[in-house]
């Protein structure tokens, strides 16, 4: 029962925080430097790990597809399989998971630490709503950076698949053939759906991480507990949202 009450309280806090942050949306223009800083932290610093993971996910997909398809002579379709899997599912989900682990945890740690050391209270006594200067720039930045990260993840994943397809002896598929089937079976809508999913995942991950950080009570030990909770909740949320968003988009 207490767990259920805590979950409801958490959802309530996140919804209230979202409402307050949206209410401050007109101030976003004059918070331009904060927005740019968050774009840098969410986008630029996450880019290398997105590229590395995407490359290997694309590679593994091609490898598995080549291994399974060689027996019935369909290996020329590896391009379409890797392309569609990356664009529609693996790209957005993987980027969201990386953002949750790398950016979300850092957001929660920073806000929880500010809460524990009374910096949030200090902001409130100065009539500066934390939702305005700490949450709104992060939400706006993640909305801008998620599609960028996902597109780059998709492209690098496709490239990884192409390289593995060419240099693996039992596949030996020329890149021209790989990209030809990728283009033939993929529509712009597939990429767009992936980007829409990434937007939803990123937005809710940052919202949840901000909310859990700002709700932290107690001492330094609770900062660690909040970070763990934020990452776990974010991961669950990504997979739950993935099901529902996919259902809506299909």
């Amino acid at each position: 029962m207490k767990q259920l009450t805590n979950i409801c309280a958490g959802i309530g806090s996140a919804v209230l925080l979202l409402g307050k942050s949206i209410g401050h949306a007109p101030t976003l223009l004059r918070q331009w430097p904060r927005f740019i800083e968050q774009c840098y932290l969410i986008g630029y610093t996450t880019l290398p790990i997105v590229a590395i993971l995407s490359f290997f996910i694309g590679s593994v997909l091609a490898l598995q597809a080549g291994y399974s398809m060689q027996s019935f002579g369909a290996k020329e379709f590896i391009g379409s399989l890797v392309g569609l899997s990356m664009a529609r599912e693996l790209g957005p989900v993987m980027v969201a998971i990386l953002v949750a682990g790398r950016v979300g945890s850092a957001i929660t740690a920073e806000l929880a630490s500010m809460k524990v050391y009374q910096e949030i209270d200090a902001l409130e006594t100065m009539n500066i709503p934390p939702s305005r200067i700490l949450v709104l720039p992060r939400l706006a930045a993640v909305l801008v950076m998620m599609p960028v990260l996902t597109i780059i993840g998709d492209l690098v994943g496709w490239l990884g698949g192409a390289i593995v397809s060419k240099y693996t002896p039992f596949i030996a598929l020329e890149p021209e053939k790989y990209f030809e089937t990728l283009r033939r079976f993929m529509k712009f809508k597939d990429v767009l759906n992936g980007l829409e999913k990434a937007e939803v995942f990123g937005f809710f991950v940052v919202l949840v991480c901000c909310s859990i950080g700002l709700e932290t009570r107690g001492g330094p030990r609770e900062i660690g507990a909040s970070v763990t909770r934020a990452v776990v909740v974010s991961l669950i949320l990504i997979l739950v949202l993935d099901y529902f968003v996919t259902k809506i988009l299909i």
Binding site: Y117, Q118, D121, A122, T125
Partner: peptide, 9 residues
């Protein structure tokens, strides 16, 4: 309010 630990940013 001047906080106990200062609460400086």
């Amino acid at each position: 309010l001047v906080f106990q630990a200062g609460a400086l940013f």
